[in-house]
């Protein structure tokens, strides 16, 4: 069992009213922002289940938007976020899907990237899926994400580059749509790697997308 911190019971400092529906929503937004990285013009949120039914009274809509804009969970400005957003088009959709977690959301940037995540309790979150590929990111590790054409040797090529930086890999997850099809890899790291590593990984044959996802504060 992983040992828990004292601050799991006397933190976080956050804006209310709910650690799962407010702080969790902000952190999902922050994580999505870390993944998409680009400035965006448009963002759409699809809220599922309990997020959809009780989100209004918990400020889940405000939290998600504040998160993608880079506000931290304890920022008092979250409450009036709608008054402070300019030049960004944002929208919400509310729906039900019992196959999803009770507190679940899809965050769609510029109609280009869809990031699905859950607020799993006490402000903790999990990103499950990015553009249809399974993910497993909880914001506690700096993570290198890449998408590529599935072929043998990719894991060793990537881990070799990381190993040369003397960075330890905490965990590694791969997924693919079919043998030889499109694949994804998530490499959770003990310390972050620099943009030079991202560049090197980009040079690998058959890799078509690489991003360096920072962990949450």
């Amino acid at each position: 069992m992983e040992q828990k911190s004292l601050f799991s019971v006397i933190s976080p400092i956050m804006v209310g009213p709910s650690s799962s529906h407010t702080a969790g929503a902000v952190r999902l937004g922050l994580m999505a922002r870390n993944i998409y990285k680009n400035d965006f013009k448009k963002v759409k949120f699809i809220l599922y289940n309990s997020f959809a039914t009780t989100g209004f009274g918990h400020g889940t809509d405000k939290g998600l938007l504040a998160g993608v804009l880079g506000y931290q969970v304890d920022d008092s400005a979250i409450k009036n976020i709608f008054d402070n957003v300019k030049n960004i088009q944002y929208s919400y959709e509310y729906t039900e899907d019992i196959s999803r977690h009770p507190n679940s959301v899809d965050i769609i940037f510029d109609d280009k990237m869809t990031i699905c995540g859950d607020s799993v309790g006490a402000g903790e979150i999990r990103i499950n899926c990015i553009n249809g590929f399974l993910a497993n990111i909880d914001g506690t590790y700096d993570t290198l994400l890449l998408m590529y054409k599935d072929r043998p040797g990719m894991i060793s090529t990537v881990s070799d580059i990381i190993q040369k930086q003397k960075v330890n890999i905490a965990s590694l997850h791969c997924d693919r749509d079919s043998k030889g099809g499109t694949a994804s890899m998530y490499v959770a790291l003990d310390i972050p790697v620099g943009d030079d590593v991202v560049e090197k990984v980009k040079q690998i044959k058959d890799v078509f997308f690489v991003t360096n996802i920072r962990k949450l504060k």
């Binding site: 799991s8 019971v9 006397i10 933190s11 976080p12 400092i13 956050m14 804006v15 209310g16 009213p17 709910s18 650690s19 407010t22 702080a23 400020g59 405000k62 304890d74 008092s76 979250i78 409450k79 006490a122 402000g123």
Partner: peptide
């Protein structure tokens, strides 16, 4: 009450029980 009006509080242990400690 600060919690429910989206004010800044400390979850202790949770946001719903933030007033007790």
């Amino acid at each position: 009450e600060e919690n429910l009006r989206m004010g800044r509080i400390v979850a202790c242990p949770t946001a719903g029980s933030c007033g007790i400690v």
